[in-house]
Amino acid sequence: MIRFLARRLAGSAVVLLLVSLLTFGLIWLVPGDPTTVLLEASATPEQVGRLRVALGLDKPLPLQMLDWYGRVLSGDLGQSILLNRSVTEALLERLPVTLSIAAISLTLAVMLGVTAGILAALFHNRWPDQIVMSTALFGLSVPDFWLGLVFVVVFALGLGWFPTGGFTPIEQGVMEWARSIALPSLALALTQMGFVARMARASMLDVLNQDFVRTADAKGLSRTYVVLRHGLPNALVPLLTVTGIIAGALLGGTVVIEQVFSIPGVGRLIIGAILSRDFPVIQGGLLFLAVVYLLVNLVVDILYAAVDPRVRLA
């Protein structure tokens, strides 16, 4: 277990290094810098130059990178150029928003997707299977932002059940909080649910054809018991991997869906930073999302060993 964690930590460090190198590279490729946003169009080249020196943007790129790595290693993601606060502060402030949307849609997608997929497997080639599979195909084919817009038109503008956008912190009332994130979470979840349902169905069908399920049937146990006690635990093993994958997809999805519902989460922070060339926020935000993604997959791998006794963490 300790060896496993050490290996994974080393691997994660490499991934994070690559992510930050890539971010630096992309920022360098994109024309423009924060001075164009900070200063009036009438600013003189001297003013621009002074600001660039003040922000450290005049140094060669490798030196900027080394500076940044040095600070990150000591736990400091730097100061936002535009927001007048530290990057860490800005991220932490918006983190609960993004995490609640991502976590709720992940839970919805996994719970409903697995249930639907298993129902489909149990009614293989009969009408419940066909309904689940065509719904799943619809979910897979539709982009989450489009689904979000449709939800806004139908449930917010049309029926008035939910607000069209914005975010209410949970401290201001659980109901209000739930209503404010219901539509974005659902829009994100539905697109992933199709994927989960298809994988769950395939996994369950595979397991139900295994010899040990026939052994359980030969014991004279009820079908429900055989499916839940023998089928499900085995079918869940590959679904854990799927959960790790969609956790990544959902993190990416929040970036877009926060835009659609104008929700002040980490995704909108990063998009705003990209538009205004707020380099430290872009760097810090992407590094942060990468860390979250790596953590989720680490948890998935540990759960893997917990669910399947044949898996040894080493």
Partner: peptide, 14 residues
């Protein structure tokens, strides 16, 4: 009934 393949006839996670 006793099955042929003891490798696959038992539930691996039980």
């Amino acid at each position: 009934m006793i099955f042929q393949e003891p490798m696959t006839a038992l539930n691996p996670v039980m």
